[in-house]
Amino acid sequence: MSTRKPLRLAVVSAGLSVPSSTRLLADRLAETVRSELAAAEREVEVEIIELRDLGVDIAKNFASGFPSPELSEAIESVTSADGLIAVTPVFTASYSGLFKSFFDVIDNDALTGKPVLAAATGGTARHSLALEHALRPLFAYLRAVVVPTAVYAASEDWGGNGDSLTDTLPRRITRAGSELAGLLRDLPGGGGQAVDDASVVPFAEQLSALRPE
């Protein structure tokens, strides 16, 4: 087994209900990444951040300019992690206000170069493009490294068989999780690596690393 430090994976879930399909998707993605890294003999510590529990703290931060201890802890967990899974329900064809507000209180440079897997849930497949017109641009603006496969789960995807043009949800989860694990696998671990513009891997190299040999 590798003697390197465990990798740290932050998982942000913006689901509002209990139980939540958003949290369910987040858990399945995290477990896939954990399994892929275990196969590569890398240990990973997963921390779940439920934004539902931080809604009031986030609103107060906008009004006062100061985060509560709980919000500060959540922000630190996300910004210091080696990688991030971010999952939101889709409201009005975009990410939820709670999801956007959380990332609004994070410093614009704090996610630079961080590997991110973006995912969303919704009642209908018609909202799946929110991944490309909302979530991916958000993390691109924050200069994160977003894996090629984003995962959207509509109500019919849970237990569905897909169709001739789309993979099933489990296959999409596996592909996206494998892509994130591929970016995390060779990091030093411990969430302590310094990331700046000079250390960001060019996108062509990122894609090359994800291609099967």
Rank of each mutant, 00 (worst) to 15 (best):
163 D>K: 05
30 A>I: 02
112 T>I: 15
143 R>L: 10
17 S>H: 05
138 L>W: 03
199 S>G: 05
134 A>Y: 00
141 Y>A: 14
46 V>R: 09
187 L>W: 09
1 M>W: 01
52 R>G: 00
113 G>T: 06
174 T>A: 15
78 V>M: 07
198 A>C: 02
120 A>M: 06
108 N>R: 15
57 D>N: 06
88 T>G: 00
138 L>I: 14
26 A>C: 01
45 E>V: 13
153 A>E: 05
58 I>T: 07
166 T>V: 04
66 F>V: 14
94 S>R: 13
100 K>F: 00
198 A>M: 09
139 F>Y: 01
27 D>I: 13
40 A>E: 13
60 K>I: 01
109 D>F: 13
54 L>S: 04
194 A>S: 14
87 V>W: 07
77 S>G: 14
35 S>K: 12
50 E>I: 04
117 L>D: 06
124 T>H: 13
124 T>R: 10
145 V>E: 12
92 T>Q: 15
92 T>M: 14
173 I>W: 02
197 D>N: 11
18 V>G: 00
115 P>T: 13
200 V>Q: 02
213 E>K: 11
54 L>R: 00
119 A>R: 08
163 D>V: 04
175 R>W: 00
135 L>F: 06
32 T>N: 10
49 I>D: 02
104 D>W: 08
31 E>V: 08
185 R>I: 10
4 R>D: 14
22 T>C: 10
17 S>G: 10
205 E>T: 11
99 F>Q: 03
177 G>I: 03
46 V>I: 14
206 Q>M: 12
100 K>C: 04
173 I>M: 07
169 L>D: 03
34 R>W: 02
166 T>S: 10
91 F>S: 09
204 A>S: 14
174 T>Y: 07
12 V>Q: 09
114 K>D: 04
207 L>W: 01
57 D>Y: 04
106 I>R: 03
181 A>P: 05
143 R>F: 03
175 R>E: 13
30 A>P: 04
3 T>E: 14
128 S>V: 12
184 L>D: 05
189 G>C: 11
206 Q>K: 12
35 S>A: 15
16 L>R: 13
168 T>P: 07
194 A>Y: 15
189 G>D: 08
180 L>G: 05
137 P>G: 11
60 K>T: 09
123 G>H: 02
162 G>V: 03
191 G>V: 05
194 A>P: 03
102 F>V: 08
144 A>G: 11
203 F>V: 10
34 R>C: 06
200 V>W: 02
97 G>M: 04
206 Q>R: 15
112 T>H: 09
67 P>L: 02
11 V>K: 05
48 I>Q: 15
61 N>P: 00
109 D>Q: 15
132 E>Q: 12
65 G>M: 12
212 P>S: 11
59 A>K: 08
163 D>A: 08
199 S>V: 05
